[in-house]
Every structure is written in C-alpha cells, then in structure tokens.
Lab assay of single mutants.
Amino acid sequence: MLDDRARMEAAKKEKVEQILAEFQLQEEDLKKVMRRMQKEMDRGLRLETHEEASVKMLPTYVRSTPEGSEVGDFLSLDLGGTNFRVMLVKVGEGEEGQWSVKTKHQMYSIPEDAMTGTAEMLFDYISECISDFLDKHQMKHKKLPLGFTFSFPVRHEDIDKGILLNWTKGFKASGAEGNNVVGLLRDAIKRRGDFEMDVVAMVNDTVATMISCYYEDHQCEVGMIVGTGCNACYMEEMQNVELVEGDEGRMCVNTEWGAFGDSGELDEFLLEYDRLVDESSANPGQQLYEKLIGGKYMGELVRLVLLRLVDENLLFHGEASEQLRTRGAFETRFVSQVESDTGDRKQIYNILSTLGLRPSTTDCDIVRRACESVSTRAAHMCSAGLAGVINRMRESRSEDVMRITVGVDGSVYKLHPSFKERFHASVRRLTPSCEITFIESEEGSGRGAALVSAVACKKACMLGQ
C-alpha cells in the first residue's frame, strides 16, 4: 500500500517536472537572447534605426563620474514606483581627507489618484512632500541643488532636461508624456511658492545606482535594477552614441532593455503563462523582457503555473481556492519566502493557508518547484541581457580580458534567497573573457542622484555659470 502511494507521488512529481521543464533555458538559448539583445542595442544607438529599435539606448548626458572633490548639501528625489523618497545628502571631506556622503531620508507613498490623475496632481503632491521634508529638517530658507531620480523612459536633451516617452509600472498621470519632466517639477514648486529649489540633474535609477557604486569602486561602469521592473545602464564610447554629437570619451546610456521583445525577438521563448500575464497587464505587448524578470510579474506567473497544475490534477487534489483564482493573489514576496523555507515546509504551508488552501507535504514541495522554475528562468533571462552589455563593452574597448564592476539594486536581487547566485553564475558562463565584480548599492537611487548633481554643480562652477 505504502509502495503504491510512494509510486503515485513519484509519478505525480515526474509529471510536474515535465510541465515545469518549459521554463528551462539551455545555454544556447541564452546565447541567442544575448546576441539578439546586442543587435537591438546597436539599432538603438544608431541614428537611422533608433526610432524602430525596441531597446532605445537613451543617452543620459552623464559623462563624468564623481571624483571626490564636490562638497555641499544636496536634496535628492526618487520616483520610480508607488513609494517616493526625499533625501538630504551631505557631501563633504571625511576623516583623513576621505570623501564622505551622509544621508537623511523619508519615504512617502503615492496615492492612487496622483498616479493615475493628471501630471499637475502628481507633481503638486511631490512638491508637497518636499515642503514637508524641508519643514522637518528646518531647511526651507536654503535654496538647495536638487537631483531627481526618475525611473521611467526619458529622452534627455541635457542633464536637466528630459522628455517622458511613456509611463510604465502602473503610472498613468495624463499630460506628462511628451513633456519635460524637470519643467513639470519646477512648475509645481513655483505653484507652491513656499520654498526654492535648483533642479540641476535628472537621472534614471540605473544611472543613480551606477554612480553610487562608483563611489565604492571606481571600476563600476554598469548599473542595473532588478526590482519591480528590470533595466540597466553602462558607459558607452561616445563615438557609438549617434544621437549625441561628439566622439570623445564616454557617456552613460540608459538601455531601457525592459522593452526588448516588443518587436518579436522573444516570441519563441514566451510561454502561455507569459501571454496571460501580458494580456492582463496595463501595457499589453510592451516591456516583454521586463515581464519575464521583474517583481511586478513574478508572483503572478507562479500563480498561473499553480492553476495549470491544479487543472492537471497534480496539486491540491485538483481544487483551487477562490483566493488562488484571484489575479495578483500570489505576491512576489511569497516566491522569495517559499524558496527561503528551511525544509520543514512550515513557511510554505503558512503562505498557502493564507490563500485558503490546506496543502499536503507533496503540495508544498511542488509549489516550491514552481517558484524555483519561474525565478530561475528570470535570473537566466536577466543574465543574457547583462552578458550582452558586458561583452559589447569588452569588444568596443578591444580588451582581451576586461575587469568590470556592476552596481545592482532592486528588491528581487536583494531579497530573493537564490536569485543573485543563479544570476551571477549564468552571467559568468556567458562572459568567459571578463572578470566581473557585483556590488549592491546602498540607498543607491538617492545618493547617486545627489552625486550626479554634485558633478553638475562642479561643472557649472568651472564653466562660470
């Protein structure tokens, strides 16, 4: 009897593995994704193909990295998701002549009506938060230079001027797309009239992360975010950046690689679950690469896999709870928690219980395998993109072996128990001629924006502006 049951459990697990095998990517698959990513990057950089390229390769006008001589107080704003952060950054000489960066910050959550109302409502709310922060720190009387981390696709015309191309991540505030974001912020500050600010720089969160990590390690020339969304930036040779005049030196390019796949480059790798996630998203047909990796989508992918296993009578005796059938019910943090389970399955059992399920031991094991399959594919897909960037940098610099540091931020990278190990191992397999160091950014977005502002202020002083 026991043997029969054991055989049935083994057969069930084997069927589960057959279904989950769809998520496995072979090294040849990853090399294919990497080569296609490089081709799209090239198209994004070139003037004649930029418009139709899915990977936009947006110039950021960040050319210099901090040298350690900029000092002063800077205000930093960070808008990239449902939370908005205001930070005071003091850049100065530390002990023994070292450079020191001290920060104080406060988080504000953005109400739904500000995210989806008008641009005026959104930026009025942001300036209200700045006003509140300055009151708390008794700094209303000071006109501070301000660095703005704005983590949406922007076409820069200068370091302090950028046109919002399109909202992502659930934002829909009308009247912002096609307009200068810094102008919208300046107008809102003017409307309030109770404080003055000098907006000197606007950067993407990947750029802010790279600059913040450069402060720790001067070989950091790539910034990457794996959180709600997924994106990367890197220092490109100016001669390859056709959208900006000049051939000397390097400029940081914001790849906006989340949109890779929007022209069909990933079609052969998309599964039924991916198509369902895409169809029910706020932007169907867009940001397809990001939807395979980002935390906004990972939990939902797992939920759809679990429903398939229920329908195949391989999980929960073929019956799903009402909660499990509800879109968004299986949160991405559950994926991390399930994979963090120590082996007694308590954590998995508790999560499934909150979803109205009474799982068996085998159910718990199957749910864990589903989570591992989805998150491992995410790590491997992400590795193909980064390997594409790094191999490109090595080739354009004609280096036999390139040493490089990548600064990384984002909740999936930082909080998932195995993502970074799987990701690092896969990147290294795909970049055999590179020695890569990964560092995690601390308060990256805010500190990085302030350091970019410090560079901009120093330049302005040198130019006598």
Rank of each mutant, 00 (worst) to 15 (best):
L2T: 09
D4W: 15
A6L: 11
A6W: 12
A6I: 08
M8F: 08
A10W: 09
A10L: 11
A10E: 10
A10R: 14
K13S: 14
K13R: 09
K15V: 10
K15H: 14
L20N: 12
L20E: 06
L20K: 04
L25S: 10
D29V: 12
K31H: 12
K32V: 10
V33E: 01
M34N: 11
Q38G: 08
E40T: 08
M41G: 03
D42N: 13
L45E: 01
L45Q: 00
R46Y: 07
L47I: 09
H50W: 01
E52Y: 10
V55H: 00
L58W: 14
P59D: 04
P59Y: 10
T60Q: 02
Y61P: 05
Y61D: 06
V62K: 03
R63S: 14
S64H: 15
G68W: 04
V71R: 15
F74P: 01
S76R: 04
D78T: 10
L79I: 08
L79C: 08
L79K: 01
T82K: 05
F84V: 03
F84H: 04
V86R: 02
M87D: 01
V89S: 08
G92D: 09
G92R: 14
E93A: 06
E95Q: 13
E95V: 09
E96I: 14
G97Y: 08
G97A: 13
T103D: 11
T103L: 04
T103A: 09
T103S: 14
K104H: 09
K104S: 11
H105S: 15
I110R: 02
D113I: 12
T116C: 10
T116F: 01
G117K: 06
A119H: 04
A119T: 00
A119I: 01
L122T: 03
L122E: 00
F123T: 01
F123R: 02
D124A: 04
S127H: 03
E128I: 07
I130F: 06
I130P: 01
S131I: 06
S131P: 01
F133T: 04
D135I: 03
K136R: 10
H137L: 13
M139W: 05
K142A: 05
L144P: 08
L144C: 06
G147I: 02
S151W: 03
S151K: 05
S151N: 04
F152K: 02
F152P: 01
P153K: 08
H156I: 05
E157F: 09
I159F: 04
K161L: 04
I163P: 02
L165Q: 04
N166G: 07
W167I: 01
W167E: 03
F171C: 00
G175Q: 03
G175E: 02
A176L: 01
E177S: 00
E177M: 04
G178N: 05
N179Q: 15
N179S: 07
G183M: 00
L184K: 02
L185W: 01
R186D: 14
D187T: 02
G193D: 00
G193P: 06
G193Y: 08
V200H: 01
V203F: 01
I211T: 15
C213A: 15
Y214E: 15
Q219F: 15
C220D: 08
V222L: 14
G223R: 01
G227P: 01
N231Q: 00
C233R: 15
E236V: 02
N240D: 00
N240K: 13
L243N: 06
V244C: 09
E245N: 07
G246T: 06
D247I: 06
E248W: 14
E248H: 08
T255F: 02
W257L: 10
W257S: 01
W257Q: 07
A259I: 01
D262R: 10
D262Q: 07
G264C: 09
E268R: 02
L270C: 05
L270V: 12
L271P: 06
L271W: 02
E272C: 11
E272H: 04
E272D: 08
D278T: 13
D278V: 05
D278A: 11
D278P: 04
S280L: 11
A282S: 14
N283M: 08
N283Q: 11
P284C: 14
G285S: 12
G285D: 11
Q287L: 03
L288I: 13
L288D: 06
G294W: 01
K296G: 15
V305Q: 13
L306K: 00
V310G: 10
V310S: 14
D311Q: 14
E312D: 14
E312G: 13
L315N: 11
L315R: 02
H317I: 09
S321A: 13
S321G: 15
E322A: 11
E322M: 14
E322T: 09
T326S: 10
R327K: 14
A329D: 15
E331H: 07
T332G: 07
F334T: 04
S336Y: 05
V338P: 06
G343M: 07
Y349H: 06
I351R: 07
I351F: 03
T354A: 12
L355Q: 13
L357H: 05
R358C: 08
S360I: 13
S360K: 08
D363W: 02
I366T: 09
V367W: 08
C371M: 07
V374Y: 05
T376F: 11
A378M: 01
A379H: 02
H380E: 12
H380S: 09
M381Y: 15
C382T: 09
C382P: 03
S383N: 11
S383M: 05
A384T: 04
G385F: 00
A387N: 03
G388V: 06
R392F: 04
S396K: 13
R397Y: 12
D400T: 09
M402H: 11
T405H: 14
V406A: 08
D409H: 06
S411G: 08
S411E: 01
V412Q: 04
K414L: 15
K414W: 08
L415H: 08
H416K: 06
P417A: 12
F419D: 02
A425C: 09
P432F: 14
C434S: 08
E435V: 10
E443R: 07
G444M: 01
G444F: 01
S445G: 09
G446I: 14
A450R: 00
V452M: 14
S453R: 02
S453C: 12
S453G: 15
S453M: 02
S453E: 03
A454C: 10
A454K: 02
C457M: 11
K459E: 15
M462C: 09
L463Q: 10
